[in-house]
């Protein structure tokens, strides 16, 4: 029996990757996290001299922080909602129907991501200026909507294509009209994967910075935009650190939610389909 035991080898490659990832991702997070709960931290001390929630109180007491949180949440909600209303039926059309220009249109959603985003944004800003959309809520909604199109079309298309057509036909057969079939059969079948797309689009919009800044400034200030201005203009590091930690909250909640909603493999199905 003894010689059938496989010698347990140390997976050096795996350890190397894990260490590299830890240094690159976890270490900065730790530093920022520590700064957020630090009252005094002076060179050359390795750990802060004084921990505390002083800067949390100061940050959360600011009106601009609260208004930017509300702004970010309402923007992300509005963009995700509009994106779902526009993109899901479009994705269904891409998945199930054949119409002229289908392939070119389908790949055109990639175009927005294929070029340097900032150049595109500046060009759009020029157009928005003439339309009086600069500095307005709906201007930012519009620009962020463009950013969600790729996820909200491509992932649901794959999800819809993965739904067995016979299931839809069986529903037609028992008396459901096309819209009822979509609502009662196709959407629930594609549900988990679409939930993943919606989640991605919400979180992506919440963190979107360039568009919100270029189109929204100075009237519209989202949390990331505010954080940038804090980091640039404030000599106190803790303000930025506290906002960073605040910004983790939605993605953390999203991740928890994702673990429950997304059955294993549906992400892969969405991207791979």
């Amino acid at each position: 029996m003894a010689h059938t035991l496989v010698e347990k080898r140390i997976d050096w490659t795996g350890i190397l990757f894990a260490v590299a990832l830890t240094i690159v991702i976890v270490f900065p997070l730790l530093v920022v996290g520590t700064w957020a709960f630090t009252n005094v931290w002076r060179y050359p001390s390795v750990i802060p001299q004084e921990f505390g929630l002083k800067f949390w109180q100061q940050t959360l007491a600011r009106a601009d922080v609260w208004s930017s949180i509300t702004m970010s949440l309402s923007l992300a909600t509005m963009v995700t909602l509009l994106s779902a209303i526009i993109c899901l039926p479009a994705a269904y059309a891409f998945a199930r129907m054949d119409f002229p220009g289908r392939s070119i249109l389908f790949f055109s959603f990639l175009a927005g991501h294929a070029f340097p985003k900032f150049g595109l944004l500046v060009a759009i800003a020029g157009i928005f200026l003439q339309l009086n959309l600069i500095g307005t809520f709906w201007g930012v909604v519009l620009i962020q909507l463009v950013g969600t199109l790729l996820f909200m079309i491509w992932i649901p298309v794959a999800a819809f294509q993965a739904v067995d057509r016979r299931m839809e036909e069986a529903a037609r057969d028992v008396g459901a009209g096309p819209f009822r079939v979509f609502w009662s059969i196709t959407l629930p079948q594609a549900g988990p994967t679409i939930a993943a797309a919606v989640l991605l689009s919400f979180v992506g919009t919440f963190y979107e910075t360039e568009g919100a800044w270029l189109i929204g400034a100075p009237q519209i200030r989202t949390l990331p935009v505010l954080m940038i201005s804090f980091i640039n203009n404030q000599p106190v590091i803790q303000y930025g650190a506290v906002l960073s930690v605040l910004l983790w909250v939605p993605s953390f909640i999203a991740l928890l939610f994702a673990r429950r909603v997304i059955s294993s493999g549906s992400f892969a199905k969405g991207f791979g389909g």
Partner: peptide
């Protein structure tokens, strides 16, 4: 006439039950 308006009932080879 569309399938939903026909008095026919179809059983598919893949049974096509709604798994949700």
């Amino acid at each position: 006439v569309t399938p939903e308006k026909r008095p026919t009932g179809m059983v598919f080879q893949s049974h096509a039950l709604w798994t949700h």
